[in-house]
Design a protein around this nucleic acid. Sequence first.
DNA 1: ATGGTCGTGGGACGA
Length: 259
Amino acid sequence: MKIATFNINGIKARLQALLDWLDEAAPDVVVLQEIKSVDETFPRDPFEDRGYNLETHGQKSFNGVAILSKLPLEDVRRGLPGDDADEQARWIEATVVGDQAVRICGLYLPNGNPAPGPKYDYKLSWMARLKARAEELLAAEEPALMAGDYNVIPQAEDAAHPERWAEDALYLYESRAAFRRILNMGFTDAVRARIPGPGHYSFWDYQARAWEKNDGIRIDHLLLSPQAADLMTGCGIDSDVRGREKPSDHVPVWIELAA
DNA sequence: ATGGTCGTGGGACGA
């Protein structure tokens, strides 16, 4: 089962690029972030024509997440638990049953800039809720993963120029500590485990020719429960997608599970 | 330090 995460930065602008990548990469499951669309106007047909089931959790103009799957999506839940007043569409999860069931969570973690400030406070409180959901997933002792745009640069080697991010919410100590706490509970950072070392990025800013200079950061992650990590047979970053026509500023990151 | 570039929606904000 090939499972990917892709922050597409707007479904309207990215439809053709997304379809082209889907046709060539042929993932079984994809979690999408920043669809920037309400559910009613998400273009379902081209995905359903390709045999994908689709569940969206959108909002107007900003944020928005979705799951695509060639297998049925069961037990779909929208919204990260822990704050009924949170109206931002950043979390969706569902179970996909292949050879065995995998609980798949797609997330778009708050950016948090400028920091300090209310947006950074929201990021950190959101990460505390994420940890609580992660604890529940671990307690189930089943294959599960949380994939998406975490807006966290875990380590210095995950940025081409880490010093430039020193004051940024993506790299501030509390952001990295909250991410590390989830790893320390027993989740595996798939790319870190399978493709160790520096230079593996998932985002290049549109500005200042960041792609041409390979001035990237790694902020799109797949975190696997122990039962999912035991099934991992492959992992990759489709960085070439960033160099195509009308690209997102993020690229797809994927794993292969024996499930 | 500033400006640099996108997407959405049709202005200003988020990233």
